[in-house]
Amino acid sequence: MLKIKNLHASVEGEEILKGINLEINPGEVHAIMGPNGSGKSTLASVIAGNEDFEVTDGDILFEKSNISELSPDERAHKGIFLSFQYPVEIPGVSVTNFIKTSINQVRKSRGQKDMPANEMLKKIREKSALLEMDRRFLSRSLNEGFSGGEKKRNEIFQMAMLEPKLAILDETDSGLDIDALRIVSDGVNRLKTKDNATLVITHYQRLLDYVVPDVVHVLMDGKIVKTGGKELAKELEERGYDWLKEERAEMSS
């Protein structure tokens, strides 16, 4: 589904991603772990199409077509979703109006008509129940004054509504208490099908107890330095990242 080949990307002239190779198939959950500043969030942003980052080399293929030149909205139309580490507050737009606009714009891009109002309402009810969201929450301004947990639940709610093929969860667990973490990860798990894929980006192993990955990658200094199964996450939790740095140093010498 997603195939990244030798991806190099920089921001303001500084190279952050230095040759990433990654392949994710339908039905898979991948985790990318790594120390702060290793380029994890940059990778998420570059896949989503953030124009602040410049792709200097390599390709991003999504369902076999190169999406490197596509805008963030065009990538969303193809079925890529990014759950933000820090969702942006937009005063004056309610959660409901926002998601309606979002869904109908995606449908429009696929040549479909607007979703009928009753169908939309039903879907909103169903998906907000999945995330245990209060009805009143939906009429509030998008993310404005939301707690950390509410913001993340709202991200997964949007994901549930949009039903993406590839969901990228950028530090979705950061700042969540245990209840919110359970609600959010339950939501993610229930949205999993054999046809979609999830890329979990996290600093901690905690989320991976709930959203169990098939493959774990370690990103350091802009490169994937190790790939393994779910047990790799546990090892990292216990041993930290330093041993990997040493291992790399040995390899390069």
Partner: peptide, 30 residues
């Protein structure tokens, strides 16, 4: 217009022009 907010809206499939309009509407909404 807040570029970060525009990017956020665009990752949800809302094209640039519509995203800008939505933000301007939101701005005038009060």
């Amino acid at each position: 217009l807040d570029e970060e907010a525009l990017y956020y809206l665009r990752t949800r499939g809302i094209p640039k022009r519509e995203a800008r309009a939505l933000m301007m509407f939101a701005f005038a909404n009060n």
